[in-house]
Simulated assay, not measured.
Amino acid sequence: MSSPTGAVGPPAGDGAVRAVLATRNPHKAVEIQGMLRRSVPHLQLLALDDPSLPATGEVVESGTTFAANALLKARAAAAATGLPALADDSGIAVDVLGGAPGVFSARWSGRHGDDGANLALLLAQLADVPVEERGAAFVCAAALVLPDGREVVHHGRLDGVLAGAARGSGGFGYDPAFRPAGEDRTLGEMSADEKDAVSHRARAFATLARQLPDLLR
C-alpha cells in the first residue's frame, strides 16, 4: 500500500533499492510498483512529492513522441534526486486520424486532464466513421534513466477499436470507449486486474522489469 506521500514498497534501509517515479500521482506509483514487484521485490518506488526528495519543478512535455516525453520526465527526476528514475508517457492513436491524438491525448479537448471532454470530442470526430474502420491502439513508452546517464526505453501497445459510445464505469480517460482486439467489452467494462493484465502500460513495464535487476544492481 502507498503512504499519503506516495512511497511504495519496503522501507528504506531494509535492503530496499530506492528509485523515483516521475509522477505526483501516488495511485500511479502503486500501479507501477505492482507491475515491477516480481522482478525487483525490494524496490521502493517514490513519487515526486515524497518529502524525502528535493522539490522538483514541472516538466514541459514538449516531445513529439511518447518516448521523448517519458525521457524528459525521467531525466529531470534523476537529475533532481540523484536516484534511478522511471517515467512513462502514453495515449491513444486512432488510425483514421493519422495516429492522433497521440502525445496530445491528455489535452485533446484543449484542457489538460479533462477526461470527459477529451473522450466526448474524440467520439464526436468519429461519429460518421463505421465501427470496422475505427481501429486504434493505446501506446505507452516506459523509460528508465540512471544517475550515471544510462537510459532505457521500452514500448507497449494494445490494439483494438473505438466503440460508438462509452460503456462501463471502470478505468479512466478513453478506456470506456476502447474495445481491445478479441474482446466484446470495453476497458471500462473490465475489472482493474483484467485491464492490467493486457494494458499497454503493463506491457511496456513488463519488458523494462526484466532488465531492472541488472540495471539497478
Rank of each mutant, 00 (worst) to 15 (best):
M1F: 09
M1P: 14
S2W: 01
S2R: 12
S2A: 14
S3M: 11
P11T: 10
G13N: 10
G15E: 01
G15H: 07
R18P: 12
A19V: 03
V20M: 07
T23M: 08
N25T: 00
H27R: 15
A29H: 09
V30L: 11
V30K: 09
Q33P: 01
Q33I: 00
G34C: 11
L36C: 11
R37H: 10
L45N: 13
L45K: 12
L45R: 11
P51G: 07
S52V: 13
A55D: 15
T56C: 13
E58K: 14
E61F: 05
S62G: 15
G63E: 06
A67P: 09
A67E: 12
L71Y: 02
L71H: 07
R75F: 02
L83I: 06
L86H: 12
S90W: 03
A93S: 14
V94L: 04
P101V: 02
P101N: 06
P101R: 06
F104M: 10
S105Y: 05
R107M: 10
R107Q: 13
W108D: 02
H112R: 12
G113T: 10
G116F: 04
N118A: 05
A124K: 10
Q125D: 13
Q125I: 00
P130E: 03
V131A: 15
E132H: 13
E133I: 00
E133A: 14
R134M: 03
R134A: 08
R134Q: 07
R134S: 07
G135T: 12
A136K: 00
V139C: 12
A142R: 07
V152I: 10
V153P: 01
V153D: 02
L162D: 04
G164L: 11
G164W: 08
G170T: 06
F172Q: 00
F172T: 00
Y174M: 01
D175H: 03
F178D: 01
F178I: 00
P180K: 00
G188M: 05
E194I: 03
E194L: 03
E194F: 03
V198E: 05
S199K: 07
S199E: 01
H200I: 03
R203K: 15
F205A: 02
A206G: 15
A206P: 06
T207V: 14
Q211M: 12
L212M: 04
P213V: 07
D214R: 15
L215M: 13
